[in-house]
Each structure stands twice: as structure tokens, then as C-alpha cells.
Write a protein that binds this DNA or RNA. Structure first.
Length: 588
RNA sequence: CUCCACGUAGCUCAGCAGGAUAGAGCACUCGCCUCCUAAGCGAGGGGUCGGAAGUUCAAAUCUUCUCGUGGAGGCCA
């Protein structure tokens, strides 16, 4: 359904037209002076020059020609030329009733759904997830869900780092430790064991050990490089080891992402793109897109309008090996073949921006990706500790994601048991749910592109702009609705009446913004706008709650109207937190 | 050195397709539970929006310069 602001704008636009002014000046915005009005239009001032009239005259003119007044209840021109409006409470309640009855709470879904692919996560196999992986996972998941909410067809791809030197290192170290394994017996022709020769714990230890050895020992490094080469060229035993690594590691990653409530539709990785590389390189050479430069194979991506030098996109090192640009391009070929996406969104550390500029340009220039396909880079900032420096453990090491989650859950558990007496198992479960909201909301409430400070105390607080505060608000509503239903009444099919009080109307106007906020968050790929919105909505609800005795209201239609408003508020909040990737408990 | 991002209250952050008195939260001071979760609500103090010019009727928002911080700049991702 249409946005409330657009409905208001239509009325005022007709008045602009009737008064002889262009409709485009009728842009309506939310009032920045809530003490004066609810909505405003500043078009009279914008048009003053064109029409050579004082803004206030235009404003008065427009008001005089306002004939449709379904939504605009009060309108007033104020110097120098503001047009201030208040909305008809009756129309707002009707709007909300319609919204409540609709499937998607009034969201106007895309008429032509796009195929969108979100590339996020990006963990390396055989390495534990650390806090650096949090942002990509949380932001990507949210972008995916927002786009889905807007009616698009969206696939999330984890894009595993599962190929290359790191794998060679593990194979080499494993061979040193267990040389008798059949994988390393060149004459072995039988079936390899189905059981992996290591656990995830061992794997996580093998990699850093091997990496350290390679740095210290040139010979070891060469062995690892050779193992990498053999693996990539189909060495039977190494491939079998690689499959074990993948199976063990992916199982562990799935578990960890599940704990974070992050779900990938595709578990593709760099290895999947590998098959496309030889043809791609041959093709790029043949068509003249790629040329040799200082021994490496590159694609020029410099454009005339550039103010700075953009280095070429490198697709092959001088030793013939491929590198991340190669894989990223090949992955695009694969995606084009498999899904033909209209839009690919990369959720990656912002420091990789230049690399993606190169890849995007190369992809477009070479026709790997059609001209009309949108390629977006959503770069996120660093997660810092309280000291403003990259987040570390107390000992100064890299913090594992699962440890961070556990720490937050403990903190939450403490708070829950300190505040109320709850059963052990329920407290644990609630701590988990609320803890996750604290982490995600803490991250998402900041603009993705900026660095932010991860402050455990602040994020787990129940006060202020935090996940727990939002959940607390939802729980409050649920509690009232449960009591209402316990009296034998049903919450279904109730309708709202026009708001009688200020806090009620404020809550209603806030609720009416839902579809607009969601659309805007989608267009700008900005989950933090949803956070800001539900914080406002929660505040509006809590104010209303404080002044209004809902269950003890004696006027039955009024009471039902309150309940209907509560149901709608709850549904909006739940829809928003779902898009942010967490949910509300029954009690807390 | 070149390019990019950021700089808003003591702290953490919004606002930045220009609009009226720059907003929250935390912290600080005060008030509100015989009443649906006080993990709440209300009130108060706290700002030359890093600095300087410019564009405009109007600049935190746009442009240029400048200072500070962080980042990137062909064979790691």
C-alpha cells in the first residue's frame, strides 16, 4: 500500500497544481518541529525564485487551493514559507487498520522482483571464526532479509576461503605428522577412508603451526607451495585430504553461524570458481582484454574520468598462479551462469574497496557481467575495543567469535538472574536470545561503513538504544496481550479508532512509517535505519503505555482499539527485528 | 607522496538528496511503583557540529582550503 507520506503529498501536490505551481515543489517531509506540526512542506521556499514571489505568498496560495483533505487535517503557512500540517487522526487509524489487515504490513513489494545475490561471511576453512567475521555475517544477513522483505529473490552466498596456499600448508603439515596415511602413498589406488584423520580442534591447531613453520623455514614453504600446486592440479590423495578438511570445517562453521542465526543459501567457495579460470584467462587473452605487464597478466581498468590512478586488475601472477582478482572474476562467471543475478552485493571490509572497484570494472569491461547488472560494494568498518583500537582479547590476541558470544551470554544471564527470579533453564535460554540481540543490534545500529566501538557493557544494557531495550518493549506488549487473552478475549480482527490522546497519535504516526522505513533501508542498504526506527517506535510505545491504562479501560471499543494498536506495534517490531536477525523471548 | 573515509555534548552514536530552537542514550541532578514487567516514564544541566573561506533567502548538511585520525595505493586477501 502507499506510504502515508505519499498520500499526504498527493493532496498538497494537487493544491500546488491548482494554484499554478509545479507538483515537484510539493515534497512532504517529517516535521523537524514536532511542537508545531507533524508533517511539513518546504516547497514554497524552493519555488520562490522560479515564480518570483515571496515564499509565504506561495504557501498561502497553495493552502487556499487545497481541496482534497482526507489526510490533511490542519494546515498553516508560517514565515518565511513553511507549510505545516497535521494529519487527520481518523484517516491515520483507517490507514493502520488497512496495514494491519495486509499480509506484509503495508509494504509495497517489488513489482518485478530482482534476483539479488549477497556475498557475505567469507570465512576461511580450517580457521576459527573470529570477531572480524561478525560484521560481514550480521550485516549481510540483514541486507539479505531486508531485500527479501521487499519482495526480491535473494540468495546469500558464504564465499568460503577454501582454496590456495593455506590448504597446501595444512596438507604439508599433516604429511609430516602422519606420513603413513594412504593419502600420501603415491601407489595407493584403493578407497580412501571416509573418516577424517583429524578433528576440528586439531585442524585449528595445524594451520597456525604450519603457517609459522613456513615463515621460518624456506624449504618448508616451498613444500607447501608445491603441495598447493599439486592439490590445485588434481592430486588424488591431496584432494581427498582437502575434502576431509572441508567436511570437518564446514560442519563446524555451520554450527557457529547457526548460533549467530545466520543462514546461507549457498556454501560456495573459491574452489568452486576454479574450474572457470583456465577458460576465462584464455578467453580474456584472446579477446585482448588481458595483457602482460611486468610478467603478470592484467586487465586495465583506468578510466578517463578518474582523478587518481587505478592500478590494473591482476588476474595472474608472474609465476602463473591465480590470485583473488582471478577468483572473484571467475566467481562472477559462475554466478552469471547459475543465477543470472540482477544485483550482486558484496559485504566486505571497506579496506578492500579498491580491489572491488578493479574487479567490477574488469567484469563490466570484459562482458563477464552484463552492463545492466548492478555490482555493489558495501564496505564495513572495523570493530574496535573500548580503547578505540581493533578488538582484542585481554591477552591481546584475536578473539574467537564463540568466546565473544559466550561472554555476552554470561553477562546477560547475570543480569536476568539479578533482576528477577527465573528458572535456570529459562534464564539460560533467555540469555541466549537477548545476548544475540545485544550483539547484533550493537553492530547494526551503527552505520555499516564506519568503525565502531564494541562496548559489552553498553550493548548488553537494557537502557537506551540497545537490542535488549527493544526486546523488553516487545515482551511488555506480549505480556499485556496474554493477560487480555487470559480473560477469554481474542486479539484477532480488532480495529483501531482515531487516536484520542497525543501519545496514542504519536505511536500511530510512528507505526505508519513502517513501510517507508523498510523501503528506505533497502534502497540505501542501511540496516541502522531500521534500528533507529524501532528505537523511536519503542519509545513512542513506552510513552503511550505509561499514560494509558489499557486493560482496565472500561469503554470496550476503546479498549479493543488499544489492543489492536498493540498488536500492530508488536507485529511491526517483530518484523523489524526479524530483518535484523534476532527474535524476542516470551518473558524476560 | 597521491587518493579515500571520518572528525557533532565528558563518553557512545543519530541527523548530512540544505530549511524553523542540532537530537538520542550513557554518565550527572531531581521527581514518579496500593495500577497491564520501574529492565519503565517525566524534568534538568551540558554544543562556536575540528578550523577558515565560499555558494544560498537558509549550511552540521554542498564547494574549496586547512588541521587531526584512520585506511588504501599490481604479484597476500
Amino acid at each position: 500500500m502507499k506510504k502515508l507520506m505519499d498520500l499526504i503529498e498527493q493532496e498538497i501536490a494537487s493544491a500546488f497544481e491548482a494554484a499554478g505551481y509545479e507538483r515537484k515543489y510539493a515534497k512532504v517531509t517529517l516535521s523537524n518541529r514536532p511542537d508545531l506540526c507533524e508533517y511539513q512542506c518546504n516547497g514554497a521556499m524552493a519555488g520562490a525564485k522560479v515564480y518570483k514571489k515571496a515564499p509565504i505568498m506561495i504557501a498561502n496560495d497553495v493552502i487556499a487551493h487545497l481541496t482534497e483533505k482526507k489526510y490533511i487535517a490542519e494546515i498553516e503557512a508560517v514565515n518565511p514559507g513553511f507549510i505545516n500540517m497535521k494529519v487527520n487522526a481518523e484517516a491515520v487509524s483507517e490507514y493502520l487498520n488497512e496495514m494491519k489487515a495486509e499480509e506484509g504490513l503495508g509494504i509495497e513489494k517489488a513489482k518485478e522482483p530482482k534476483m539479488i545475490l549477497v556475498d557475505y561471511g567469507g570465512p576461511n576453512v580450517a580457521k576459527p571464526l573470529h570477531v572480524g567475521h561478525l560484521r560481514s555475517a550480521v550485516i549481510g544477513e540483514s541486507i539479505k532479509r531486508i531485500a527479501r522483505k521487499m519482495g526480491h529473490k535473494v540468495l546469500g552466498d558464504i564465499h568460503l576461503g577454501d582454496w590456495g596456499y593455506q590448504m597446501g600448508l595444512i596438507v604439508t603439515e599433516l604429511q609430516k605428522r602422519q606420513p603413513d596415511l594412504p593419502y600420501f602413498d603415491e601407489s595407493f589406488e584403493g578407497e580412501y577412508p571416509t573418516e577424517a584423520p583429524f578433528t576440528i580442534g586439531e585442524l585449528e591447531e595445524i594451520y597456525p603451526t604450519a603457517s609459522a613453520k613456513a615463515k621460518a623455514d624456506e624449504k618448508y614453504r616451498e613444500e607447501a607451495l608445491h603441495a598447493t600446486y599439486l592439490l590445485q592440479n588434481g592430486h588424488r590423495g591431496y584432494r581427498a585430504v582437502w575434502k576431509h578438511i572441508m567436511r570437518v570445517s564446514v560442519a563446524d562453521l555451520k554450527k557457529n553461524y547457526e548460533n549467530l542465526n545466520v543462514e546461507f543459501d549457498l556454501w560456495k567457495g573459491e574452489s568452486d570458481a576454479q574450474a572457470y579460470i583456465p577458460d576465462m584467462i584464455a578467453d580474456l587473452k584472446e579477446k585482448g582484454f588481458a595483457h602482460e605487464d611486468q610478467g603478470a597478466l592484467v586487465i586495465d581498468v583506468q578510466e578517463e574520468t578518474d582523478t587518481k590512478e587505478i592500478p590494473p586488475c591482476m588476474i595472474q601472477k608472474s609465476d602463473g598462479a591465480s590470485l583473488y582478482g582471478t577468483t572473484d572474476l571467475a566467481t562472477l562467471i559462475q554466478r552469471e551462469e547459475d543465477y543470472h543475478p540482477d544485483h550482486v552485493i558484496y559485504i566486505v571490509d571497506k579496506r578492500q574497496e579498491l580491489h572491488f572497484v578493479q574487479v567490477f570494472r574488469a567484469a563490466k569491461k570484459t562482458g563477464i557481467v552484463p552492463e545492466e547488472t548492478k555490482l555493489s560494494f558495501l564496505g564495513f568498518g572495523t570493530m574496535n575495543g573500548k580503547d578505540g583500537k581493533p578488538f582484542k582479547t585481554r591477552e591481546g590476541g584475536v578473539m574467537r567469535l564463540e568466546n565473544l558470544i559466550a561472554e555476552i551470554e554470561d553477562e546477560m544471564y547475570q543480569k536476568i538472574t539479578d533482576n528477577r527470579t527465573v528458572e535456570e533453564s529459562e534464564a539460560k535460554e533467555t540469555a541466549k536470545i537477548v545476548g544475540l540481540s545485544a550483539i547484533r543490534y550493537g553492530d547494526l545500529s551503527n552505520q555499516a561503513s564506519k568503525d565502531y566501538i564494541f562496548d559489552v557493557d553498553r550493548f548488553t544494557s537494557f537502557e537506551g538504544n540497545t537490542g535488549p531495550y527493544i526486546l523488553y518493549t516487545i515482551v511488555r506488549i506480549k505480556s499485556i496481550l496474554n493477560k487480555y487473552m487470559a480473560e477469554g478475549a481474542s486479539v484477532d480482527g480488532l480495529c483501531m479508532q482515531a487516536a484520542a490522546g497525543d501519545s496514542e497519535k504519536a505511536l500511530m504516526l510512528e507505526a505508519a512509517k513502517y513501510n517507508e522505513v523498510m523501503e528506505n533501508a533497502y534502497e540505501e542498504l542501511a540496516p541502522h535505519k531500521i534500528c533507529a526506527y524501532i528505537y523511536d517506535l519503542s519509545n513512542a510505545f513506552n510513552r503511550f503505555y505509561h499514560e494509558t491504562k489499557i486493560l482496565s479501560e472500561e469503554d470496550a471499543p476503546k479498549k479493543q482499539s488499544y489492543i489492536a494498536l498493540l498488536v500492530l506495534t508488536k507485529e511491526i517490531l517483530e518484523s523489524c527485528i526479524d530483518v535484523l536477525g534476532f527474535e524476542a523471548p516470551e518473558r524476560m
